[in-house]
Design a protein around this nucleic acid. Structure first.
Lengths: 254, 254
DNA sequence: CGGCCCACAGTGGTCCGACCACTCCAGTCG
DNA sequence: CGACTGGAGTGGTCGGACCACTGTGGGCCG
């Protein structure tokens, strides 16, 4: 694995005094950092960097690509944010397992930063995915998982602490979605249901007996799962998310 | 907003000899860069940083947060990758309009780097979203947009250049999805249908008269749109993506 | 007088070299 | 044999220097 075309690709070789023209033979594309990011992504895509594998030290890597450590660090940081790499202080840099959860963590950021009409769109997206996932779960859920769902359902109804309720609410849906068997979808829905996102949407919704309504909806979803009725599950889940969606919509158009 | 705890956080003010203990009053959490990222995200969320607005210079920002320019740059780079910020060389750093497209561009990276079973999951995700979007489009599409769809459809059938076909294929679906009226969903599907992703999935599929099949499926989708029949549109789109999905699945289980 | 051009200041992009904080492991000591 | 303690190696942070690009204002030319 000697992708080290010696000093050939050396970027520092920019002709001195090239300020005026010097763009003839060596017109690289984007920024150095951007290129470094692409290089690493390519290495992973091509397979020369396997998931879980440890990368060479920052200093070595920088030298190998012919760029400074600073630029290399920015590239690494970027890939770390994307969930592709993982840096362990004092140990090294590793390629993540590249599982859905690793890569889609950034999805939560979108939900966190979105405002206005986009909140409605995100909720609509969640409605579509969650209803389908719940439907799939109805056909595939295992007894174990169903027991877990029930555990969160009863726990949710047994407390008054909003924090606890929210936590079990999240876990309730999460367990169901996980039963659909599509980890990527689970990761996406995780982002769409992140704590801060829901907290922001729900803010102020708790008034006017929304608790009771939520409880009924959850019960309906649970019933559909027990009955192994995909259509009923889809409808119940869609109605559940749709309720929040409707409320949010009405709130934006007085 | 007094994010200037006086000289306390001043970097140069690091207590001499604090190496051994001095951890009483200032036990910050993650890395400096991570904190900087959170700070900026919070500023945006709270509204003190509006979309399109220009940020202070890197040097100023670094000084304001009491960190070095290098660390600040890494934070900025991270947010740039996430599509939250946009750096213009020589001009300044700006907050993006925070539209779905900006924030979800990273979604394409996921598709690019995923392999194995995850490819199937991504395709399943696309099937769910695209079928729903196509269904919605059937009910809402405008004559203008429908004309655009037809344009790409005929152009696609009129050439033999795989490059051209792929381009029009993408545009075909894109125009339809856009008609569903949910920009966030459009952005997600864009990522799920990115050039490299599809190219990778399709590789080798072109043999055995897949062209004809694709053509028929596209025609079916178009017919459903013209008839403004949501159910038919959903079915046609699901079948279309499902075909590729099925092929990919069979390929992975000999 | 009006429009073009250039120099300049400001900004992001890159690089360097140093030091700190942490992890890991091997060699040592009890 | 096990717990402890170094040191080597690695990522994290820092500060300063210089380059490349942009935007603008003043001066020059027509």
């Amino acid at each position: 694995m000697d992708e080290t075309p010696p000093g050939a690709t050396e970027p520092g070789a920019t002709e001195p005094g090239a300020t005026a023209h010097g763009d003839g033979p060596a017109p690289p594309k984007g920024t150095v950092t951007q290129r470094a990011i692409e290089r690493i992504k390519t290495m992973i895509r091509e397979g020369s960097l396997e998931p879980g594998q440890r990368l060479p030290a920052e200093r070595d890597l920088a030298a190998r690509l012919g760029i400074s450590r600073s630029s290399m660090r920015e590239a690494i940081r970027a890939l770390t944010i994307l969930g592709v790499l993982e840096a362990r202080h004092g140990s090294g840099i590793y390629v993540t397992r590249l599982e859905a959860g690793d890569l889609l963590e950034t999805f939560g950021v979108v939900a966190d930063l979105s405002r206005g009409p986009r909140l409605v769109e995100l909720l609509e997206l969640r409605r579509i995915l969650e209803s389908t996932a719940t439907s799939m779960a109805a056909a595939r859920i295992t007894p174990d998982r169903l027991a877990e769902v029930e555990k969160h359902l009863t726990a949710m109804n047994a407390t008054d602490d909003p924090e606890q309720i929210l936590a079990h609410d999240l876990a309730f849906h999460r367990a169901i979605v996980a039963s659909a068997g599509n980890e990527t979808m689970t990761a996406v829905l995780d982002g769409l249901s992140s704590r801060t996102f829901r907290a922001r949407v729900r803010r102020g919704d708790q008034e006017e007996g929304a608790f009771e309504r939520t409880r009924r909806e959850h019960a309906a979803i649970h019933r559909a799962l027990v009955a192994r009725d995909p259509e009923a599950a889809r409808a119940a889940a869609a109605a559940h998310v749709g309720e929040v969606e409707r409320w949010l919509r009405s709130r934006r158009e007085p």
